[in-house]
Design a protein around this nucleic acid. Structure first.
Length: 475
RNA sequence: GGGGCCGUGGGGUAGCUUGGUCUAGCCUCCCAGCUUGGGGUGCUGGAGACCCGAGUUCAAAUCUCGGCGGCCCCA
């Protein structure tokens, strides 16, 4: 499948797809706010059902906190405020009267959730707490907004918040969070690099931040998940104390980690092509579309079998759709391909005669005949295969877009020409890091999570490299 | 943070420089009917637009200012 426009005019491709594939309407008259359409919303819900399930399986409980946060509580954690106050929307009035205490539309929910944690946590027996919610958050973005990617209302923000008795337990929680996210992105076939963000790009109020980045077709990285170890920073501000088994009062250790609708953009872009979307079967709103090919005089059996096939699949738990509109088959093919339906089943006079259906894969265009009596198993098998092949293909292009460089010019050249991620040596000093960003025109993603052997010399100061660092043009 | 470009039916565009000929052209999508049906079928008919506000003028899609919205470049 061709991927020229997809790569060369990615921004245009993405915007066209949002509309043509019925994902979002971007014409809402407020900057940075967009409308989810029914098909897009189904996709969104399937994607977030996956992460919900993974979180619940690992002992997280879903909660739901209010949107509004009183100013005095919001402002308690100094670092946190510094990171966010430039982009907070404030509710200043109730009706015609001015509010005594302004209310913030949450830009994230630490300051909304942790005061309640203070009420819930009394003793070590209350720990750990592992909760999450899927909510909208608001950020007054001043840069250019982009549907699903840079929003003023993030409509779908999954944020998990945990509290633990010890630093070690919080560290273990970070590891668990990373594993959950890995499994999640693997389910979607979205490739990623996990890095520890440099200090100047650490979440406001965190001890350190990890982040998952994937690559858009234009070679820019997209941050699709973050995991933060908050240490006791918030605990000390919000008085999150518990009584230890021997009767002492201690502050808890916390973590939080988030994923937004950006992940949907990622899934759309990494698997797409010039025709349009190619959705992973696990989250595709329609997994199989059944298209009857009704030649004149032979309509009845064709329609009848097509309908039976669709019913059989639906009963078997496959999300199948019968397209019995009175338009030409070719038009239906394009229609569903653009919307990313992973598998198409055609049923024409010839198939009726041979007691078979013709299956066509969205990802490869490959067609094959399936005997009618093997339908269910074969469809399941094909969906599995497509799922695996999509993941493999996405990882392959991700790896091909990851380069090595040892000097500034090479790194800049790679990012200018091809985009992608560049790995290079770095002494680890912030000063050199910032200069490296400035001179290469890239952003430092960080050092690889889990550690990595370093070699070479820092291209800025020529000291021996303490670590390898990853750079990229970012969204 | 600084600079530039742009806004015409649902989508893409012509017209704007040189205001009147615009009753706003074209492609596509959409609707109805017939036809057709294994990769965007053909024909006929139909519906649908000058971003908002103020100003200049006898006259504004066209010129000026502001707002809102979109896009791009540099830091």
């Amino acid at each position: 499948m061709k991927r020229e426009r997809w790569q060369k005019n990615f921004s245009e491709w993405f915007n066209d797809i949002l509309r043509d594939a019925d994902i979002m309407d971007t014409r809402y008259p407020v900057k940075g706010l967009y409308v989810w359409l029914p098909y897009g919303l189904k996709l969104r819900n399937h994607v977030f059902a996956v992460i919900r399930q993974l979180l619940e399986q690992s002992g997280h409980q879903e909660v739901l906190f209010p949107l509004l946060i009183p100013e005095d509580i919001f402002r308690k954690e100094a670092e946190h405020i510094r990171g966010f106050e430039g982009q907070v929307y404030w509710v200043t009035h109730g009706g015609l009267s001015k509010l005594d205490v302004k209310l913030a539309l949450r830009p994230t929910s630490e300051t909304s959730i942790y005061p309640m944690f203070a009420l819930w946590i009394r003793s070590h027996a209350d720990l750990p707490i592992k909760v999450f919610q899927v909510v909208n958050v608001f950020r007054y973005e001043t840069k250019m907004t982009k549907p699903m990617i840079r929003l003023r209302e993030v409509t779908t923000f999954k944020e998990a918040h945990t509290a633990h008795a010890t630093w070690e337990e919080a560290e273990a929680q970070v590891q668990e969070a990373v594993k959950v996210y890995q499994r999640f992105f693997d389910e979607l076939g979205v490739p990623y690099l996990i890095t520890k963000r440099p200090p100047w790009d650490t979440f406001a109020g965190a001890v350190y931040s990890l982040a998952f980045d994937t690559l858009a077709p234009d070679g820019r990285t997209l941050q699709i998940g973050t995991v933060h170890n908050l240490g006791q920073n918030f605990a000390k501000v919000y008085e999150l104390k518990y009584e230890t088994p021997d009767g002492k009062q201690e502050y808890v250790y916390q973590t939080c980690y988030g994923i937004s609708e950006r992940v949907i953009a990622a899934a759309m872009m990494v698997h797409g092509d010039d025709i349009g979307l190619c959705l992973p079967p696990k989250v595709a709103p329609i997994q199989v579309v059944v298209v009857p090919i009704p030649f004149k005089g032979k309509e009845a059996p064709v329609q009848q079998i097509a309908s039976a096939v669709a019913n059989e699949l639906t009963t078997a738990g496959v999300r199948a759709h019968l397209d019995d509109r009175d338009v030409r088959p070719g038009r239906k093919f394009y229609h569903w391909e653009r919307r990313g339906v992973p598998l198409r089943l055609e049923i024409g006079p010839e198939d009726v005669e041979k007691d078979q259906v013709t299956a066509v894969r969205r990802d490869t265009g490959e067609r094959q005949a399936i005997p009618r009596n093997a339908l269910r198993n074969k469809v399941r098998e094909l969906l599995e295969t497509i799922d695996g092949d999509l993941r493999a293909r996405a990882w392959k292009s991700f790896n091909e877009m990851t380069h090595e460089a040892s000097d500034v010019e090479t790194a800049k050249g790679l990012m200018d020409r091809r985009g992608g991620i560049v790995r290079m040596p770095w002494c680890g000093d912030e000063e050199c890091g910032l200069e490296l960003e400035e001179r290469t025109g890239g952003d430092i993603l960080g050092e690889k999570f889990g550690g990595e052997q370093a070699s070479g010399i820092c291209p800025i100061c020529s000291k021996r490299a303490a670590k390898s660092v990853y750079l990229a043009r970012t969204y």
